[in-house]
Design a protein around this nucleic acid. Structure first.
Length: 436
RNA sequence: GUGGGCGUAGCUCAGCCAGGUUAGAGCGUCAGGUUGUGGCCCUGAAGGCCGGGGGUUCAAGUCCCCUCGCUCACCCCA
């Protein structure tokens, strides 16, 4: 190749000049269809419970997200932020809870305000299994309700969703981080404990300790296990009210027969969480990213964003990780996009053009081949597409105003026999064959 | 941000360690075997800047350096 030499081309057709940016990807059919069905499944479940969809913008003033917490990587190092042409400091949303709460403060809707959402979020992280720079979530948020049974309702929605997908191996981990002052006292106690045993901590955990003592509990390093096991427990710091709230959540879950594991070490990455926190772990996921969803209470967030003190609770579920879990369990398969009819036309293609349009207008899924392929190839294409029947038009049929209807695989018995029908009878004939 | 693995046909991958004619296989695609009939079988064809750049060498897909990308893990999180 290139034996005669040539000026160096800017880019060969085989080596695309542009590809998706790191951590992003194109979602093609049938995966894209699967994503849409997942979102539809979610929307049906939450709308049945009175949640309305909110579509917040994908970018906000940077300050909206800074309220998520200065100790969190999501805010401090992973934000996609930039200054726009108007000099505003903007950030692509790393999650949607902050946007929802901002919208609540901005519009002051009646409470309880129950919303759901789906869509992409952006975090500048190094991509790996189950972790992308642009990733989809579905979620719900409720503003204005203290009731611990609302926490249960919210968790139950997620649980119902996973079940609707067919997932069995998803574990619910539950914890309460207490009210702010309880949490602060606990953090101080943790700080004291870990500082007294610095030499027992891994270097990584020592670094974490300085930024966010709570997160040391989340270490999965073996070497840290002993000192973590000896650490004080959050439950010792609960007020009576916090303890009662948590107990109501637990009893509510039991009343709904939702299995859960109380995990005192469960510490979520966003530090706005108060009281109830939870996470759903995909037990079949062997990657390090096995959290398929998580959420909790954020009673102080509305106030942080300039509103009046308003309790809030919600969750976000990772669409990609949820689908990974579905793959691991072999459930919620990609939908079939197989056509009912595949038009095979050896007379030049005009008949195929007309017939596919006719069938599609009648509400049938009809496809065809292009570029005047041989009949053999068109039949192969019918088979490959998984069509129920091939509708054949050759010169005989064209002249007679008929089509040959040939049932393909899946058909059985007498229906397998192909027959010739007038074009005017095609739709009725197909309907009989397709709807058993 | 740090580290490991991998970049060869549309896809999955051999070939690299021990450099040596014209770079292979399977699947897929197209055509033919079968002049109007898919799946199974047979035959043929198309399809490669061997990620990119530099170096060593008579000679590089193969060895060295750099770089980009993918991927996995740490970290963090969904």
């Amino acid at each position: 190749m290139h034996r005669f030499g040539r000026a160096a081309p800017v880019a060969s057709p085989d080596v695309p000049e542009f590809q998706t940016s790191p951590g992003t990807r194109d979602v093609l059919a049938p995966d894209s269809t699967r994503v849409r069905r997942l979102v539809t499944t979610f929307s049906e479940i939450v709308e049945r419970a009175g949640y309305g969809e909110i579509v917040p913008p994908m970018f906000e003033d940077l300050g909206v997200f800074h309220r998520l917490g200065e100790a969190t990587d999501v805010v401090t190092k992973e934000m996609y932020d930039f200054v726009d042409k108007g000099g505003r400091h903007i950030a692509l949303r790393p999650e949607q809870t902050a946007s929802v709460v901002r919208a609540f403060v901005q519009h002051q809707p009646l409470t309880p305000w129950k919303v759901w959402y789906h869509g992409p979020n952006f975090r500048y992280e190094k991509p790996q299994a189950g972790r992308y720079r642009q990733f989809d979530q579905v979620g719900v948020e409720v503003l204005g309700v203290d009731d611990p049974y609302l926490d249960v309702e919210v968790i139950a929605l997620a649980d119902r969703f996973y079940r609707a997908l067919g997932l069995q191996r998803v574990e619910l981990l539950l914890n309460s981080l207490g009210a702010p002052e309880e949490r602060a006292a606990y953090v101080a106690a943790l700080q004291e404990h870990f500082s007294a045993h610095l030499d027992a901590l891994t270097p990584e955990s020592r670094t974490t300790l300085q930024k966010n003592p709570l997160r040391v509990l989340d270490s999965k390093r073996e070497a840290d296990a002993a000192v973590i096991a000896d650490a004080p427990q959050i439950s010792a710091f609960y007020s009576d009210e916090t303890a009662a709230h948590f107990e109501s959540v637990c009893s509510g879950l039991r009343a709904l027969s939702i299995d859960f594991t109380v995990s005192p070490l469960l510490v979520r990455g966003l530090d706005y969480y108060r009281k109830t926190t939870f996470e759903f772990a995909g037990l079949t996921l062997d990657s390090a990213q096995n959290a398929v969803g998580g959420g909790g209470r954020y009673d102080g967030l509305a106030e942080d964003l300039g509103g009046s003190p308003t309790p809030g609770v919600g969750f976000a579920l990772g669409v990609d990780r949820t689908l990974m879990a579905c793959d691991a369990e072999g459930v919620f398969d990609a939908p079939s996009l197989a056509p009912s009819a595949f038009v095979v036309d050896t007379t030049g293609g005009l008949a195929a053009l007309e017939l596919t349009a006719l069938l599609q207008s009648a509400g049938l899924h009809a496809e065809r081949a292009y570029d005047n392929l041989s009949m053999k190839s068109q039949m192969k294409a019918s088979n490959r597409a998984g069509a129920t029947v091939a509708v054949i038009v050759g010169s005989d049929e064209l002249e007679a105003g008929t089509v040959t209807v040939r049932p393909l695989a899946g058909s059985a018995g007498e229906e397998r026999i192909q027959h010739v029908v007038p074009r005017t009878d095609l739709i009725d004939t197909l309907r009989k064959l397709i709807e058993p």
